[in-house]
Lab assay of single mutants.
Amino acid sequence: VRLVQFQKNTDEPMGITLKMNELNHCIVARIMHGGMIHRQGTLHVGDEIREINGISVANQTVEQLQKMLREMRGSITFKIVP
């Protein structure tokens, strides 16, 4: 398990697509080339996201998580399992 932190201070999309796997874990499905996450190089396709800013992603839908990420500003921390 590791923590990945980055800054999001604009309306620029993060450039990641999330999916739920068969165990209902949140997985990074795709990283858009040239997007914020791609430029930082901190997340990778297949990484499992456990928490966003200390909030568990368990029992949340992809749509709920994407909305939460769109609305966040400032420092964002993901707890991930590579």
Rank of each mutant, 00 (worst) to 15 (best):
V1A: 06
R2L: 05
L3N: 06
L3H: 04
L3E: 15
Q5C: 13
F6T: 06
F6R: 02
Q7Y: 14
K8H: 06
N9E: 15
T10H: 09
T10L: 09
D11K: 09
D11Q: 14
D11Y: 04
E12F: 04
P13S: 10
P13K: 15
M14C: 06
M14F: 12
G15T: 01
I16M: 08
I16F: 15
T17I: 15
L18Y: 04
L18W: 02
K19Y: 12
K19S: 14
K19F: 10
N21R: 04
N24Y: 04
N24L: 03
N24H: 13
N24E: 09
H25I: 08
I27W: 05
I27G: 01
I27Q: 07
V28L: 03
V28C: 04
A29N: 05
R30K: 15
R30I: 03
I31F: 03
I31W: 01
M32W: 10
M32K: 15
G35L: 04
M36V: 13
M36Y: 15
I37R: 02
I37C: 11
I37N: 03
R39A: 11
R39T: 08
Q40V: 09
Q40E: 14
Q40H: 07
G41Y: 02
G41D: 09
T42E: 14
L43I: 15
H44P: 00
H44S: 13
H44K: 13
H44D: 11
V45S: 04
V45A: 10
G46R: 02
D47K: 00
E48N: 03
R50W: 06
R50I: 15
R50M: 13
E51V: 01
E51F: 03
I52V: 10
N53R: 02
N53V: 00
G54K: 07
G54D: 07
I55C: 14
I55M: 14
I55Q: 15
I55S: 11
V57C: 10
V57E: 00
A58C: 10
A58R: 11
A58Q: 12
N59Y: 07
N59T: 13
Q60F: 14
T61D: 11
T61E: 10
T61L: 03
E63V: 07
E63I: 07
E63R: 06
Q64A: 13
Q64V: 09
L65T: 13
L65E: 00
Q66A: 10
Q66I: 07
M68A: 12
L69S: 02
R70A: 14
R70M: 12
R70L: 13
E71F: 14
E71I: 10
M72G: 08
R73N: 15
R73Q: 13
G74H: 03
I76S: 02
I76H: 02
I76D: 01
T77M: 03
T77A: 11
T77Q: 10
T77D: 09
F78A: 02
F78K: 00
K79R: 09
V81P: 02
